[in-house]
Design a protein around this nucleic acid. Structure first.
Lengths: 331, 331
DNA sequence: CGCCACGATTAAAACGTAACAATCACATCT
DNA sequence: AGATGTGATTGTTACGTTTTAATCGTGGCG
């Protein structure tokens, strides 16, 4: 079941079989046919590990995301998976669940597997671990995160703009007090979206500091419901809520509706990501749309270019722009 | 950066380093410490491919799902990923998108990577490819699919019961004409749920054949919306709709509401899977709940047992039971 | 005091492939 | 006819680890 058996059956040397597998153009048509039928006859499949060991690099990439349960990331993953598999790469998936320890475990696995490259949406801002990968010759592309230095690739969506759009929209609806329901402070997206929100307030002649922030430990629907409970327990509800993602927003929405609060009558609500389910919710959700699938594809494109053409590869920082999607949940 | 460098620094032989890595109890405490500090000092990480090549097996498992965009499968994947990573296994993800060709490509990748085992929700009933894997010594566990033969592991939820529950519930609401909005006929789950639906009709003294079926090419919200359009174009709407999963149901719901049809006033609607978003939709969705995360965990448990204790391993078929969850979308 | 047993360590061989230099067959040109 | 070039194929070596059998040193026992 090895390349040697194929070689024996086809009456050639192992080297020729290897050539058929890796550089078919280098081998004469007739012998190529002979080898290929031998391969089929024996049901031979290349031993990826042996190949990796010898060649010094594998045909796999690692993908580390923050929450595989979030449709935003599954859309990204779909983009990654599609392009990678078109190019003959396998994807090893790692879900960090927002935990730094899990993220590090995943990166270790990637390093052990000698993946060709890593796509990562980092769960915090510490660049050290990634540099460690790069030192090992593993290409790294940041996904949904701007580059930290010019000598690296990154693909992101402008979160400051997105936050600005969201709050500008709330203000245009006449919102007075606005609160920002956010995720862990360590997540850059949350900070950037807040920054944009603050700028929108400033642009409207108001004090950015009046934006009240409620930082939840996770960005899930359950956390959103929790946030709603906290808001309801406070003195007065804000006029409008900007949630750092749609999962939070959907949870908040549920919590508010269950308490008899009307959306958008009593409170306007806007989410972020425009996941598929945002338009299907009880009160359809206004949101900030991101080109999610494209994000994954673009990141993979950069990564594979860096892997396959290291000589000509030029590091790039791609920045997509978000869109405002207005639905029922905002006035 | 190899085991040899570690050995040199620690003043031992490469074999000892290997023992520290794989059978720490076999090596004396003092030398173990010495080796471990050397490892840390050099930032050494084991070359997984070399290890796999020599040992004959890897520490990875393959997971092949039908639609990574479906929260049902991401929940399953979360269960798989959690347990696998607890046990030190990496997960290679393959998304077949319902396409047999893609599924086969993924299985080929798994075979090349010499994964230790494969978890698969097959997209059709052909067992041949899986036997091919088993012949290669790769353990296979069927996920959300009953075993085809007694000598294999499988984890499933009783879909016939689930279909029965759904239609029984619709009938108890006084439904007259019922239609079944399904996915590709090749997907077993769709067939089983239909079978259960038929039995429920029979149990109510009605003809199972009166269940009209609308088979969509995909099980997505978009396909569901398509289905709604088809239904609306027909002569008369059924009294009740049973959708083969929640994504279809959410799409149908949207399509019906947009056309001014009231749910459940004009049409009752029930989905399947009870994904998180089912309870958050415009009209909250009645559904059939499955222990999704548990499904993934249980399957992985069986797979790793088969991998790690091949001698004592006994093949098992686990069958979970579904639950009816009644919400607003049904009378 | 010599022998044995035992735990700890080592030397060496193998896993299956890729890549390079070397060889070969053959045809073209001088 | 001999030299030269070209394209196809092969032999060999190395990748980094695991594993087995062999070796080493130490202490207990007769």
């Amino acid at each position: 079941m090895s390349i040697k058996d194929v070689a024996a059956l086809a009456g050639v040397s192992p080297g020729t079989v290897s050539n058929v597998l890796n550089r078919p153009e280098k081998v004469a048509g007739s012998t190529r046919d002979r080898v290929e039928t031998a391969i089929r006859q024996l049901g031979f499949v290349r031993h990826g590990s042996a190949s990796t060991l010898r060649a010094g690099h594998s045909r796999t990439v690692g993908l580390s995301v923050i929450d595989i349960g979030n449709p935003f990331f599954t859309d990204v993953a779909a983009g990654v998976e599609d392009l990678a598999s078109e190019r003959g790469y396998a994807v090893i998936l790692g879900n960090s669940s927002g935990s730094r320890a899990k993220e590090e475990r995943n990166l270790l696995v990637f390093a052990e597997q000698r993946v060709r490259g890593v796509l990562i949406t980092p769960s915090d801002e510490d660049p050290v671990r990634l540099d460690l990968l790069r030192e090992r010759g593993i290409a790294v592309v940041l996904v949904d995160h701007p580059a930290e230095r010019p000598d690296q690739c990154a693909v992101a969506v402008n979160d400051v703009t997105g936050g600005y759009m969201a709050v500008e929209h709330l203000l245009s609806g006449g919102a007075g007090r606005i609160a920002y329901v956010s995720g862990p402070a360590s997540i850059r997206q949350c900070q950037d979206r807040r920054r944009g929100a603050g700028r929108a307030l400033a642009a409207a002649g108001r004090d950015p500091l009046e934006l009240r922030e409620l930082a939840m430990p996770a960005m899930t629907a359950a956390a959103g419901q929790q946030a709603a409970a906290t808001l309801l327990a406070g003195d007065a509800l804000p006029d409008a809520l900007f949630c750092a993602n749609d999962l939070l927003a959907l949870g908040v929405l549920r919590g508010l509706l269950q308490a008899g609060v009307r959306v958008p009558g009593d409170v306007s609500l806007i989410g972020y990501d425009d996941i598929d389910f945002a338009s299907a919710s009880t009160v359809s959700l206004s949101s900030i749309r991101q080109p999610t699938y494209q994000l994954g594809r673009a990141a993979t494109e950069l990564l594979l270019d860096e892997c396959d053409n290291p000589a000509t590869h030029a590091h790039q920082q791609v920045m997509f722009q978000p869109d405002l999607v207005v639905r029922e949940s905002t006035r």
